[in-house]
Design a protein around this nucleic acid. Structure first.
Length: 712
RNA sequence: CGCGAGGUAGAGCAGCGGUAGCUCGUCGGGCUCAUAACCCGAAGGUCACUGGUUCGAUCCCAGUCCUCGCUACCA
């Protein structure tokens, strides 16, 4: 079907914290590539998003910080919005659900369904915290699991045995907020009868989207539908959110998952008076970009709501991505195991496209993927810099050296099949990239961009214009070949700008400046043309498109991740006993013995004895210790290792004075790769135990061992 | 427990009935215009495991194991 308009939504980020690169890779970057591509195709595009600012967690966060929920969302809305802008995520509007227009829109939506008599009213008994004077979500009730006896099971699930629970099943339930014993109170809520849409959903998704939607999305939906749908409450007891627009609904708000997706509609309304063209015309293609955890809401619940309301288009596709892990571990906002976008921008100024490249090339399209800083470096240095950046750079440098800085002409009499083949590759790449993007295969699309540059490098290498210039006896003829080769390379460069633009918009703009062409050249229909740059048009001197990532930067980022993690972990542990209100903190209760609040272990993958035997652990005696200049945390140690004296730089200066550790014996990882810190080469690492309070303790033999003794 | 997705060279991914390909990394060679880049070549995989169907399975079927997710603060 031919669509007249494309409406693109990206999941509303929860205004409870900043955005991290997992958000980017999973949702916002693919959405942006898609949107930019559609715009380049001159399609009528609206790309909408905004902050999701309702829900219980925000009230809890506000309570904890002693500020209002509005303060919480104001703070994070600003940070999130700025992160997106900086990264070039080209929303047509980035709105927020605390806006008046959103309250009105979602209330009107609710009222329509209510007037049509769609909701079922149900009175139920819910747990109520009399200390905090509020109803408790299932998640905020803790008690003993009736199945396995775990004392810290949640009201909806026991994490220890995995049983699905209801709060009533818990033995000795208590409030996670105040530890008060919750009491039951009757409350009324409005339920949306999802079950009535089962048949229709089966028709629409199971039969209609089988080969269209991604396997992970389709499979998840089918699983839901096969197991049968239940009516679902669309209201909650809370004072933060969109008030339920009914007389008898004091102290009740719309369930955050009811109002959040309507946020897409209100954002569109805020953007344009013609909003209904995008939401209510059958010739609009609606695409929701989300992460895999949102599948059920976007594929089952929201479409059912839209269907029930009537008059709205349904999503054509919901290309949900999987998750991105960081250095082998799941992203955890509460443990602070994440790479925050606003921090990346600070640490790597003007390198947005570098991150865009790496996240897109490694996007978790079919399964969870891992982001490592080493991979970030490798992909940047070996693909972006070496293949793409370098091709453009050598083309420009050669053109200035061999063609006096102007676009050289083509000499028809000397054009070879290889020249023609190179030109043909551009059109092939264009078609491939187009097909990939249209089918949400952004990784593959980006690969083709790089691959075209790779072919350009090969073409240059095969023709070697730098050699041709060295044979003066054939000057005229060779110059013609040089002209043709560089003409092709320059037109290819212009084409690369167009093809890369959806993925690497900052770079495409930079290339336009170098080529002195207007941005309009980037329109997709221009791809494949060989007259983008006029013959004898003078071009600017090349500027480097990307820079390499140094080893030091990688090490610093990994270090930063790990040190932030520790900080937050110990902070969380302190809170655990009094205020276990988030999942990650609750995890720690489960892992930790109740009576001994020790540092929650950071779980690592199991290793084999062979892995262990790779480590050369030895006892060393500290002979000299001195502070490292301009470093708060570092001590430079000289260790007697028996047969040698080693210099080791250790980050323990905050904990020990140099003079008080001389003579102490320590355990050293002797075969750790040497690393320079503050200009001093550190050869090894000393092992320390860390107390929950952050205090460091040497791991040493109980009695003096010979220096250099092996630890096994 | 059940359901969904995934488990293919050191890393990231393709393939989905005829014993495996791509990019990066590694190793060797070539070139020198270029951000020590580029080009050519090589090594490296019992396609998670166990059965079965088949003339033949990475690909189909059954079972097992592992990872992640599944009306929950997080994509």
């Amino acid at each position: 079907m031919e669509y007249k308009r494309v409406l693109i939504t990206a999941a509303l980020p929860y205004a409870n914290g900043p955005v991290h690169i997992g958000h980017l890779a999973g949702c916002y970057l693919p959405a942006d590539v898609y949107a930019r591509f559609q715009r380049a195709k001159k399609r009528d595009v609206k790309f909408v998003c905004g902050s999701d600012e309702h829900g219980v967690p925000i009230t809890i966060r506000a309570m904890k910080e002693g500020i209002s929920p509005q303060d919480v969302v104001d703070k994070y809305h600003a940070i999130i919005k700025d992160s997106f802008e900086q990264m070039g995520i080209s929303f047509d509007i980035y709105s927020r659900t605390s806006n008046k227009i959103h309250h009105e829109t979602s209330q009107a939506f609710f009222t329509k369904l209510h007037k049509d008599g769609l909701f079922e009213e149900r009175a139920t008994e819910q747990y109520y915290d009399e200390n905090k004077d509020m109803f408790l979500a299932d998640r905020y009730i803790i008690g003993t699991c009736p199945i396995c006896g775990n004392e810290n099971a949640y009201g909806d699930q026991c994490e220890k045995c995995g049983s699905t629970l209801s709060p009533e099943q818990l033995i000795n339930p208590r409030s996670a907020l105040s530890s008060a014993v919750p009491v039951k109170r009757i409350t009324k809520h409005w339920y949306f009868p999802l079950n009535k849409y089962e048949k229709w959903l089966n028709e629409w998704i199971v039969n209609g989207k089988k080969d269209e939607w991604k396997a992970n999305v389709y499979g998840q939906c089918k699983s839901w539908l096969d197991s049968g749908l239940q009516p679902r409450a669309m209201t909650r007891d809370s004072n933060w959110g969109v008030p339920v627009p009914l007389e008898d609904a004091k102290g009740k708000v719309l369930y955050v998952w009811f109002d959040a997706p309507i946020g897409y509609i209100s954002a569109t309304k805020e953007l344009t008076n013609q909003w209904s063209d995008y939401w209510c015309s059958e010739d609009t293609k609606l695409v929701h970009f989300i992460g895999k955890d949102n599948i059920v809401f976007h594929c089952i619940i929201f479409p059912s709501m839209l269907k029930a309301h009537g008059g709205f288009v349904l999503p054509d596709n919901v290309p949900a991505n999987e998750f991105l892990n960081i250095e082998g571990d799941k992203v955890s906002t509460s443990r602070n195991w994440a790479v925050w976008v606003h921090e990346y921008i600070k640490d790597f100024p003007d390198q947005q496209d570098t991150l865009r490249y790496v996240l897109c090339a490694n996007a978790p399209e079919t399964k969870d993927n891992d982001f490592t800083w080493k991979d970030f470096q490798d992909r940047t240095n070996n693909e972006l810099v070496s293949v793409f950046g370098n091709f453009v750079n050598r083309t420009f440098v050669l053109m200035h050296k061999l063609c006096s800085g102007r676009v050289p002409p083509v000499h028809d009499d000397l054009v070879t099949d290889a020249d023609k083949a190179m030109v043909a590759e551009i059109a092939i790449a264009k078609q491939k990239i187009e097909d990939y993007i249209e089918n949400y295969k952004f990784r593959d699309g980006l690969f083709e961009v790089i691959d075209l540059a790779r072919k350009g490098n090969k073409y240059l290498q095969d023709n070697a214009p730098w050699s041709l210039s060295k044979t003066p006896e054939q000057q005229a003829e060779n110059q013609k070949r040089i002209d043709i080769c560089l003409h092709v390379c320059l037109q290819l460069t212009a084409n690369l700008a167009i093809l890369a633009n959806p993925f690497l918009p900052f770079t495409a703009n930079k290339m336009c400046r170098m080529m002195k062409v207007v941005e309009r050249m980037l329109e997709w229909e221009n791809a494949g043309k060989m007259n983008l740059l006029k013959v004898s048009y003078p071009l600017r001197a090349p500027e480097l498109l990307f820079r390499k990532i140094e080893d030091m930067e990688v090490a610093a980022q990994v270090e930063k991740l790990k040190s932030n993690l520790t900080k937050t972990t110990s902070a969380n542990v302190e809170q655990t006993s009094t205020d276990p209100s988030t999942k990650a903190q609750d995890d720690k209760i489960v892992e930790t013995k109740p009576e001994a609040v020790a540092e929650a272990p950071i779980k690592k993958a199991e290793i084999s004895i062979d892995d262990f035997s790779k480590m050369d652990l030895r006892v060393g005696t500290i002979m000299k210790a001195e502070k490292v200049e301009k470093a708060d945390k570092l001590l430079k140690l000289e260790l007697d290792m028996g047969d040698e004296v080693r210099t080791v730089v250790s980050g323990i200066a905050m904990h020990f004075k140099p003079e008080e550790i001389i003579g102490k014996q320590v355990t050293v990882v002797a075969n750790l790769a040497p690393r320079k810190m503050r200009g001093i080469e550190s050869r090894g690492m000393i092992l320390m135990a860390q107390n929950p309070d952050g205090r460091l303790i040497f791991v040493s033999p109980l009695e003096m061992a010979a220096a250099g003794s092996e630890v096994r």
